[in-house]
Nucleic acid binder design. Structure first.
Lengths: 107, 107
DNA sequence: TGTTCATGTCGATAATCATCGACATGTTCG
DNA sequence: CGAACATGTCGATGATTATCGACATGAACA
């Protein structure tokens, strides 16, 4: 049974890292961290609310929210005129869990 | 007793996120991910060995290793002419652990 | 000491990303 | 339908980062 061969740099990134790499990239930015951390447990915030407490222009916040959503960190759902964001806690937990397991087993 | 006030964007990033934000930034890059993943458990690699399996110039690899070292992901130790890198597994485990705990408690 | 080898650093250029205001889209409601 | 509002998108500009080759540093060893 073949396990991941290390040493060959061009091999595919292991499954455990697929999701997490987008998360890393998304959360490598401080503005996006602050956006994530501005959520309270179970809370939903719309773009206006997030932009309001931010120091950035609304369109810039919108951009960061897109990055966070595409990485799976946040989930968006339209509600009338507004679009509410919430933390994808389950996804984050399983992703970090997978990475922690991979770390323990293979690094 | 005051806990972290959310909603105020300019507040300081919580302690659990201090270390991890540099890790996120460091591991947001695919080249740096591949470097990390090229280590086998307990293995130590020198710059030449890492550069050899990489597609990048040696000086570029050196740059990425610096980023990884400054983020605490890798530890370097000189041994004669060579400088060996190894994964800072303990640091990564505790950092990911803290984030997982914070995630469970506050998001 | 001087040569060789491994690595770090520097400076220039290229590539990527962040930021903004203006405009487009889509929703509500009169 | 048309006005008002919330959000997304676009294009331009500025800022940050990646990348490389050339050179500097530091260790081993004849």
């Amino acid at each position: 049974m073949i396990i991941d061969m290390n040493k060959d740099y061009s091999r595919t990134i292991p499954t455990a890292w697929r999701d997490i790499s987008a998360i890393f990239a998304a959360l490598g930015d401080e503005h996006r961290q602050r956006i994530l951390l501005s959520f309270e447990p179970g809370e939903r915030l719309n773009v206006g609310q997030i932009a309001e407490v931010s120091t950035l222009a609304r369109s810039t916040v919108s951009h960061h929210l897109k990055v966070l959503r595409e990485a799976g960190v946040l989930i968006s759902e339209r509600e009338g005129k507004e679009i509410y964001f919430r933390v994808n806690k389950t996804f984050l937990e399983t992703s970090f869990g997978r990475v922690t397991s991979y770390l323990a087993a293979y690094l």
